[in-house]
Write a protein that binds this DNA or RNA. Structure first.
Lengths: 303, 303
DNA sequence: CTGATGCATGAATGGCATTCATGGATGACA
DNA sequence: TGTCATCCATGAATGCCATTCATGCATCAG
């Protein structure tokens, strides 16, 4: 025998239990009396017990029928609740948001976004998964995160990329550094120790490629996870940090660091918020994307 | 659109949400992958939102899908619980028992029955609806009570009558009454004030008919609701009570009342427990009937 | 590049829910 | 008591719809 119940039979049962007449049940459900009779019989057979006692014209619940009624009503109620709850889902902000992002994003961009997001969606569960751009994109594809804030990867074939803002990679050096006097050339960079966030980062790859195009292979690096640590080392003159100016806005304004343009050309980065291509977005996610763009505009102004 | 959900679609949804593969879901449910695909699509259309996000081979729940999952699991759980609970119904004694009975039954027969019944079915809700035999049978037919303990009515066409015991109507008189010396004849009864329980009772009808057959029309009655009151009046010699000897067992033994046989013949009454013909009986009801028969045997011994 | 695997889609099919037609039972009413 | 109206059960007929079949496209491994 089947392990689940036919919803239509259950509905017929509940209506019949309520009105006590096969004919009236049929009329109510836009069915014939015969259909109701067959349905109830099938339900009784399926459950292996009699649910109604037919006494002439009168139809009454049996002991088993009374017991089943509570369950049957539950089933219909749950179905109805499911539909209602789905319809109200965009209005009742409850859910989770798993966000992958780079260290810079989590430090400079997202705090404001989270604060504003929580105002509209206080019940949302937010989880941040930090990581460099490539692994973050990987997580997105694996559905380990819902949304990522990172650099725009080269392969966007399965991504929906929402631009946030653009910035430019520069050298950040101590005010005592000779480059503050004479603009560095590409081969000068090879002689320096470059302070970068991570060898796995997309920025790192971009910088390498940038210099390779100018015939220079960079070799000496210091790899640090944290933006703050990078700036500290640059301040001490231990090397040359490669970063965007806005991540050191305060230090530059205070004269602790100087931003030096890369040689020959600008190396622009495109920050984006990513979602999986074709994935339907919840209101919360759409809102989050909007807030990211706003935050991006504010950063862009600073740049 | 329909207001209820197809259980099979719900089941497919839950399995798919669990394993993340249409093909595997199909295998699990003994369906083709195509069937699952169609079913999920129909469910999504019905609910008006996408439940899964298909990313190449990977299938993941959407925000809406996650929300729906809780309800869907509830639906299946409730269906399963309904089946289980029906199967265990005879083993988990919970329910109600509405019993219609006459005053004599509720006073002399049922107390012991209730006590024993409660031992086996402590969770049962028992309701007693007192009344004379005719109205009690009426209530049974109207499904206002589940079971009746009363006299056997003449029309048993729609009843299932379970015999309990038989007794005999007699005169109960004061020890000072002249009938204790000379056996009364039928026409002597017409000269007496007869103490009866109720004009609506079956016993009353039986007594009248009994004397009519002997050419005597009874005219003088005192109608009392209570057996106890009848006995008190008889003791005082105000009239002649018509009742069964076992209802005054104590008074007869104590010499306060004397039982006098009716003239010419015995007027036997048949006590029965009734249920509606064809109605399936729960274990509790079957047990109750059994206890009634036992109690009947005990009364019979007294008679 | 190729084969294997997975999902979507539209047409075909067959199972089953519903209807149709009918009969028996009950109750109201004269 | 007979008649009529109403109600439920039943089996055969029907038609809808769930499922399958056949196919195409995308993805992934090697």
């Amino acid at each position: 025998m089947d392990d689940i119940l036919d919803s239509r039979q259950v509905r017929a049962f509940v209506v019949l239990a309520g009105c006590g007449s096969f004919s009236r049940t049929g009329r109510e459900l836009h069915l014939t009396q015969s259909a109701v009779s067959h349905a109830i019989k099938a339900l009784e057979t399926n459950l292996g017990c009699q649910l109604f006692h037919r006494q002439g014209k009168a139809v009454h619940l049996t002991h088993h029928g009374r017991e089943f009624l509570t369950h049957a009503e539950n089933i219909l109620r749950t179905m109805s609740a499911a539909r209602t709850s789905l319809g109200a889902l965009d209005r009742t902000p409850r859910g989770r948001l798993r966000i992958g992002c780079t260290a810079a994003a989590s430090q400079f961009i997202l705090p404001a976004v989270f604060r504003e997001f929580k105002e509209s969606f206080p019940l949302y569960d937010i989880k941040v998964v930090p990581g460099e751009t490539p692994e973050t994109i990987e997580r997105l594809v694996k559905n380990e995160i819902d949304l990522s804030v990172s650099l725009r990867p080269s392969d966007t074939s399965r991504l929906e990329c929402h631009p946030i803002f653009e910035d430019e990679l520069q050298f950040l050096v101590s005010p005592l550094h000779p480059w503050t006097q004479t603009k560095p050339k590409a081969k000068d960079a090879a002689a320096q120790t470059l302070i970068v966030s991570s060898r796995n980062s997309l920025s790192f790859a971009m910088v390498n490629e940038f210099f390779l195009k100018q015939g220079v292979r960079l070799t000496s690096f210091i790899e640090l996870g944290s933006t703050e640590a990078m700036k500290e080392l640059a301040k001490l003159g231990i090397g040359v940090a490669v970063a965007a100016g806005w991540t050191a806005q305060a230090e530059i304004a205070a004269g602790q660091l100087v931003a030096i343009p890369l040689p020959r050309a600008k190396l622009r980065r495109r920050w984006v918020a990513n979602t999986l291509k074709g994935r339907p977005l919840s209101l919360a996610e759409r809102t989050f994307l909007g807030l990211c763009k706003e935050a991006g505009r504010r950063v862009q102004v600073v740049e």
